[in-house]
Amino acid sequence: MLDEVSYTDVYDLGNKLGYLPYMIQRFVELIGEKETIELLKFNEKKLKTVIRLNNLKAQFSEIEFLLLQKKIVFKRIREIPEAREIVHSPISIGATIEYLNGYYMVQGKNSMFPPLILDPKPHEIIGDFAAAPGGKTTHIAQLMKNKGKIISIERSKRRCTALYSNIIRMGVQNTIVINTDARDIVKSKIKFDKILLDAPCSGSGVIINDPSRKTSKKEEDLARYSKLQTELLDTAIQTLKEGGTIVYCTCSLEPEENELVIDRVLKDNDIKLVDILFSFERGVTKFANYSFSPELKKAVRLYPHKTNGEGFFIAKMVKESG
């Protein structure tokens, strides 16, 4: 229906779709009116189901064979060899015997990019901070061929249950799940080769999955998230070995939760941003009254309407040697 109507006033469209006015104002400031309309329209759609094939359990060809037997139609996704977009399925994809055997994980397409960008190796010790429900932990384990070590940290005991279930279902054996606040991990003196910090966020990039976000967060909440994210990232940097890599990501589109957080930690720590080689939109260097380091152009923004997936911000940093 939205396609049939020409909305010239983005604020009118935002109002009709139930967004708080501040959100529209910020989207316009970030990507302009025309693209904001595209984003709002995209958020009314339903994302295609995507699965990640798990070669810790079976070869991709075997899993594909089993899916085809069930008349599940899928297609490959160019940048992610392990991902398949479900085109048609006569049955619920999250309740097949193959799913229960851990042959695949139902997972947002764009959430597969942070582990790929982290590029974990089988001999390394990896930290996954704020790890539940485990899509990224299990993906990291897959990329490490179940070797090396992953320390997955999750503050919520309830969410640890989902993390536990996914880890064992996917056959992951190289992981320790610790139920604690990631900020406590500094005291454990563990030093990581690489860290993935998928920080808790306001979620403005995943309105397509959670329409309640149109009204559930006030503009003032962004500062609270930004403070927590900066603390978590500072902690993560402290636990990183010299020369180690950290990938910071959120599913928020708000610069206060993304570029501002990175800009702060760049000033206070011996770390530098490194280029992300996927061709997504680049991080912003100006927003409202903020001006960020030009280095932020090395970070990427995955806009939902441009990537046909969840919104993400991803930055990759390396800790410099003494």
């Binding site: 536990y164 880890i167 610790i178 139920n179």
Partner: peptide, 10 residues
């Protein structure tokens, strides 16, 4: 933090 280990190994 071993008191907080929810899972290790299999």
């Amino acid at each position: 933090l071993t008191k907080n280990i929810f899972l290790a190994g299999y």
